[in-house]
Design a protein around this nucleic acid. Structure first.
Lengths: 110, 110
DNA sequence: TACAATATGTCCTTTTCAAGACATATCGGC
DNA sequence: GCCGATATGTCTTGAAAAGGACATATTGTA
């Protein structure tokens, strides 16, 4: 049961915070879309549809969280993404909130 | 900007993990729907629509996370909810996941 | 030359979700 | 008696999201 709950939580987080997961990955190392798909599958068993990822990456760049550069290597044209300072701010806000959440809610009211 | 990001994260978490927020509240103290609405508004400035809350509470009870008891006090019929052991397990899975997330993703691969 | 893998993109259809309206009942104060 | 607060419930409508198909180009291998 505990394992089932874990899976449920992971699914819900990755569905709703996919953008932040991607930012966290790119923060550790600049990456392109296809690599993100392969990496999340290996690391987390998470299959991101490319039809969901590419529009998301584009919108994240438009919002200023990422910056891309086209790089060609052995005929493969890749859009390599780097995180921006704005992107780092968003990830930090996420981490800060998680820390806050871990402080249990047993605040007694007046 | 940092504050804007915070608000964005809070909104996204509370939209997607409202059930767990409710479980956490009820875990600290048994409660009924109307009180949850008033309490989250006072504590977090979070306005939960009753049209969203009551069906959620019912489905959470159906799933075994909560157990309710009708209590009448001065003519007010309240459905007081208590968290079940299954509900506690779900909350714990959430906390465990948060802790895991806080460990940054700088895992280098082989 | 055909096929799998790499690489990025759009689009449509279905399903899910959120907001607000509709609905009912009691109590206390004016 | 009426209104605001307490208390719980459903339902419809519209918007957002998820899934999968359609689309294209290159490289390496069988």
């Amino acid at each position: 049961m505990t394992q089932t709950f874990r899976k449920q939580i992971v699914q819900r987080i990755t569905r709703n915070f996919l953008d932040i997961l991607i930012l966290r990955l790119i923060q550790t190392e600049p990456m392109w879309g296809y690599k993100i798909i392969k990496k999340t599958e290996r690391l987390f068993g998470l299959k991101i549809r490319h039809g969901a990822l590419y529009p998301l990456l584009n919108s994240m760049e438009a919002k200023g969280y990422l910056r891309s550069q086209k790089k060609t290597e052995r005929g493969r044209v890749r859009k390599v993404y780097k995180i921006t300072s704005k992107g780092i701010e968003l990830v930090d806000a996420y981490y800060d909130f998680l820390k806050e959440q871990l402080q249990r809610l047993d605040i007694k009211e007046a």
